[in-house]
Amino acid sequence: MSSHRLFRFPKPQWLNNANARTFGVYTAGALFSLGFYILIDAAAYSRSPLNGSDPAVHITFVDWIPGICSALGMLVINSIDKSRLSADSFSYSGNGVAWKARLVLFLGFALMAGGLAGAVTVLVLKYVVPEYVWPTLWMGTANVVANGCVMLSSVVLWVAQNMEDEYTYNLAL
């Protein structure tokens, strides 16, 4: 067993398949789309005549802020080159590339966690405390579900991007 591995158990061989990587990327895209579809559906329902003649609450920009934060966090996390996270061990890396990449990665995760926490806060303060019933409560719940889908899609995309297919060659000089 090599000394540079983090975990004791080896990675399964099916993860080295190009089809598994493609499936992961498409799954991440589907989760991201599903999350924002749910949020747009709740926003459309809040302005719909099905919601009543004069609904007590509508989706406003405050409801969209957690989703925007989660989407920005996903963008930041998945735009980092994964080889830069351990770049200080290489001689070509420059001055402190790894800690800068880790800092940006932390900021991306903080944006996503803040988005999910903001969605829960909006749900509790705007929908649960005033004791709205289910059709109206769905608008706050949809925000939490949408942010959860964006976070899950980011995790799936991170894992899919770190897969190595059988046609990838790692050359080290």
Rank of each mutant, 00 (worst) to 15 (best):
T141L: 07
I59E: 02
A98Y: 02
I65Y: 01
V25Y: 08
G96P: 03
D165P: 06
S53G: 06
N16M: 08
A87M: 02
V129G: 00
R21M: 15
F109M: 11
V57Q: 00
F9H: 15
A43H: 13
G114Y: 00
A87F: 00
G118W: 04
V120Y: 00
D63M: 08
G96V: 00
I59W: 12
V129W: 00
S91T: 03
A20C: 04
D81N: 15
A30T: 03
T22C: 03
I65P: 01
H58R: 12
L31C: 11
A28I: 02
L39R: 09
Y45S: 00
S46I: 02
A146L: 02
I38E: 06
V97E: 14
A117I: 09
L15W: 15
R8L: 10
G148L: 04
A160Y: 09
G35K: 04
T60G: 08
I68S: 04
L50I: 06
S46Y: 08
S86A: 11
Q13L: 12
L75W: 07
L39A: 13
G118D: 04
P66M: 01
V57R: 03
D88P: 10
A101P: 10
S53H: 11
A146R: 04
N162T: 07
V124L: 13
G73V: 11
A146Y: 08
V128N: 02
V120R: 00
A113T: 10
L171W: 10
L75F: 15
N162F: 05
I68Q: 06
S153H: 10
L105V: 02
V120Q: 03
M112T: 06
S153A: 14
F36H: 08
Q161V: 15
V76C: 00
Y132Q: 01
A117F: 08
A56D: 11
N95F: 12
T121C: 00
F90N: 04
V62M: 07
G96H: 09
A101T: 06
S86I: 09
A44C: 10
L152Y: 14
G96S: 15
F36N: 09
N17W: 04
I65E: 03
F90A: 03
M139V: 02
L72T: 07
A110V: 08
F106D: 05
G115V: 04
F90D: 03
V133P: 01
M112Y: 07
F109V: 12
V156P: 02
Y127F: 02
N95A: 12
L15Q: 15
C69W: 10
L107V: 05
L171K: 12
S153W: 09
L15G: 15
T136D: 06
H58E: 05
L34S: 14
F23C: 05
G148W: 04
A110P: 02
I80E: 04
V144Q: 02
N143E: 08
E131W: 05
A44M: 12
W134K: 14
Y167H: 11
